[in-house]
Amino acid sequence: MDSLVRMVLDEAGVKQERLSLQWASAAEAPRFVKLITDFTGQVRELGPLGEAEGLEPAEIKSKLEKALAVISDRKVRMFFGNATKAVRKEANYSREYIAAVIEDKMTKTVTAAFSAPAEDKEKPAEKKAKKPAAKAAPKKAKAPAKKAEKKPAKKAAPKAKKAAKKKPAAKKAAPKKAAAKKKKSTVKKKTTAKKK
């Protein structure tokens, strides 16, 4: 996780020092305090996001949104899964080794995803606009919508209403799973956008 995020941040032009992954057990309060103090000092030195990188806030935001799209990309995730499998096979969990494997397997995919056509750049913005409305929209809501395209408009209308009714129920039922579903729905949106 660490290595992949660092790689993507690097591509986006964000300094790696802004991310820290550390371990402190429940009994290590002094260590935790030290870690937080050090990290805060480190970030304070870097200044606000974009200052140490020499980028404008708007520019860095668009770059990060692109990075978010890259990291949610199905292909990238697939390669990431393969890389983790390779690490597990070797049973060598040192940071250096994992970083090496990730770099070896993923540099190409990540750079390719970053240099993907500009239409990808528009998608994150689209997603953001849609998200609040269809936050917890489950798979069911999407499926009838697809069917509706094929069927005449009269039949489509009641189905859409049903889907709308299902949404609030689903929200109540699974608030914890909302985050996971969000991810699913973003992937779905991507595929539908391509179809259109």
Partner: peptide, 20 residues
């Protein structure tokens, strides 16, 4: 998830600490 961290930066965090 990797996307959590990137989203944190998108939303304007200056640094992200992950502690296990």
């Amino acid at each position: 998830d990797p996307s959590f961290v990137i989203r944190g930066f998108v939303e304007g965090a200056a640094g992200i600490f992950t502690g296990g």
